[in-house]
Design a binder for these strands. Structure first.
Lengths: 146, 146
DNA sequence: GCTTGACCTCAACTTAGCTTGAGGTTGCAT
DNA sequence: ATGCAACCTCAAGCTAAGTTGAGGTCAAGC
């Protein structure tokens, strides 16, 4: 028979490098949905290793846990996700990261202009506003009046 | 005569779009060094508008306030910064943002490979470890054992 | 059948980057 | 000289993404 179907939180931690406390936190946030033993201990699917991997990658790409939750929502909760499942979701994510890179590039180019003129002037410099829709989510209001 | 030499915190707020509370916070963090009236109210230099602008841009580029403080440390505190001062500091920052873009690009390319093979496998996928030195500063340990 | 390491919950603490509120003072226009 | 908007400080609260610790339970090996 294949290896045990379920793994403990400790094992999941070892296999992913993510702290046990973080895994519990992830469950809390809806990223993981382990079963429970009669004694109330968590039991994860093997496929959750991959699920956690996905979270790590997505984080590296700069996504927040909430965004990741919505991506993961596209995975089947019952059966083990297939290769196609993962590809679909990865591709969707790729678009987000592409957008982020584009935005960063544009911002950098504008910075170049600012270097050229030494301006950093609110009235002229296009680095303000404009891009805030896709924004690198600075908290608080960033409206420029003037 | 030219316009008043000093501006109040409210004015600085209006001119930059940054909340008064945030400006006080920035002083606390060492980003601003206003003078005080006899009555203990803050008085900023006009050049502080530009200083705050710089903070906003730097934040957009993904720098933390602490990093920004060190960049700003290169500005003269007494006299108003010259164009050359700003150019020097902007150029330094450009390098940081370039590095960030590079890292992001590399990560994306690796994601492409993962899409190709559908792996997301800890043993094969190069998206783990490796890059963590320059890392997009995920908190906590991310070592992969396995 | 008992010991012990792994597990459980819940609450409090952490850093970053602020905001909000309470309670009090300043300074400019009339 | 007075009214009142704008200023002041200090403490507490917020979100993200977790960690740490106290106090208690589970399960697997001897």
């Amino acid at each position: 028979m294949p290896r045990a179907e379920f793994i403990t939180i400790g094992e999941l931690s070892k296999r992913t490098g993510v702290a046990v406390s973080a895994l519990r936190f992830y469950e809390d946030k809806g990223l993981l949905h382990p079963l429970r033993t009669n004694g109330n201990q968590r039991r994860f699917l093997r496929s959750d290793i991959r699920r956690v991997s996905f979270v790590l990658i997505a984080q590296k790409l700069g996504l927040g846990l909430e965004e990741i939750v919505t991506h993961l929502a596209n995975l089947p909760e019952g059966r083990n996700p297939t290769l196609t499942d993962w590809q679909k979701i990865s591709r969707a994510m790729r678009e987000q990261i592409d957008a982020r890179i584009t935005l960063l590039n544009r911002t950098r180019n504008q910075l170049d202009q600012c270097i050229g003129c030494g301006c950093l002037s609110l009235t002229k410099c296009q680095l303000y506003n404009k891009d805030d829709k896709l924004g690198l989510k600075g908290p608080g209001p960033r409206a420029v009046l003037d």
